[in-house]
Computed example of a mutant assay.
Amino acid sequence: MYSTIDYLSDEHWLVDRAYVLYKILRPKTKLFLLKLRLLIYSVEYKKYLKRVIKNLPYGLTIIYLGLLSISLLAILNEKSEGMRVITLTSGSMEPVIPVPSLVLTKPVESYKKGDIITYQEISPTTGITFNHTITHRIIEEKKIDEQPIFITKGDANNVPDPQNVTKEAIKGKVILILPYLGYFPLLLKTLPGFLLLIAMPSYFLIKNELKYLAKEFDYYDFEKAVP
């Protein structure tokens, strides 16, 4: 006769077997799930990589046009008033402003110690106004004949600038620094740079557009020819 003890023994045997089977299959199941996950990630990565490669020319074109626009802006408004983009080629403000960099300056109502400003260089002895500007930091503010005077110095320089900078000589305060982007306007001012950054891209762009228009016209003529 099948007793309760026999029933419990059989149940424990089944539980033990199930537990042993679980211990055997668990690592294999984990490995299988890991491989499946890696396969899914691999497929998704390949799809993502294909999208990146497909859109890479458009992304590079946008970056190129952005850099070109900033470079042209830096060249065209070097001597304009108001907000300006300036190319810095001096290392006097390193490491804050590495060479060469682009800086965006903007006139403000007041200037204070610690501000990096761009001012018109004027000879302290002859009073002659030079045809370029200096971008340095204000280290001191004082008054001479009730007029505010700013003492400036480059962060990498050991001594202050000889010029007492008046508010009228200040062109603006540096509000944005674009490190190392000064290479583009500097290169653009040279003949090889102009050919590389303007002439060649323009040639290929016009060539591709003409090819596209030719295909469009051929397709249009074909559509008209088909009754």
Rank of each mutant, 00 (worst) to 15 (best):
R17M: 10
E140Q: 14
H136M: 04
G127C: 11
E81H: 14
I144S: 08
E146M: 07
K54C: 07
L14P: 00
K106T: 04
K173M: 12
L25D: 01
S42F: 06
D145A: 15
G154S: 14
S92T: 06
I134Q: 01
F130K: 11
E78Q: 15
D218M: 06
I97C: 01
Y45V: 10
K171M: 11
K153W: 04
V85C: 09
K50L: 14
V103R: 00
G127R: 10
D221G: 00
M83N: 13
V43P: 05
A169L: 15
K47E: 08
T4Y: 07
S3I: 02
N158L: 09
Y180T: 05
K171V: 06
Q163D: 05
L210H: 12
N158W: 03
N131C: 00
A169C: 07
R26S: 06
L191N: 14
A74E: 02
A214G: 13
L72Q: 10
T61Q: 05
F150Y: 13
L191V: 15
S71D: 14
P201M: 07
S69W: 11
T4H: 07
A18Y: 06
A199C: 13
I177V: 15
Y219I: 15
I116A: 02
F130H: 11
V15H: 03
E81C: 09
S42Q: 03
I24V: 15
L213Y: 09
K142M: 11
K113V: 15
E168R: 08
K35R: 12
L195P: 04
L181T: 09
E109N: 05
L76E: 11
L195T: 08
S42W: 03
H12W: 12
P98K: 03
K50Y: 14
T118G: 00
A225P: 00
E44F: 15
Y58C: 06
P148V: 04
P192L: 13
K143W: 09
K207Q: 10
G66R: 06
I53H: 08
L205E: 10
P95L: 07
I175K: 14
L49Y: 10
L56P: 07
P148F: 04
P100Y: 06
N77D: 13
L213S: 07
A18T: 09
L196F: 08
K28D: 05
M1F: 08
H132L: 08
M83W: 13
N208S: 07
L33V: 08
R84D: 12
Q120G: 00
K50P: 04
T126E: 00
P185T: 00
P124C: 05
I62V: 15
D6L: 08
E168K: 11
P148S: 06
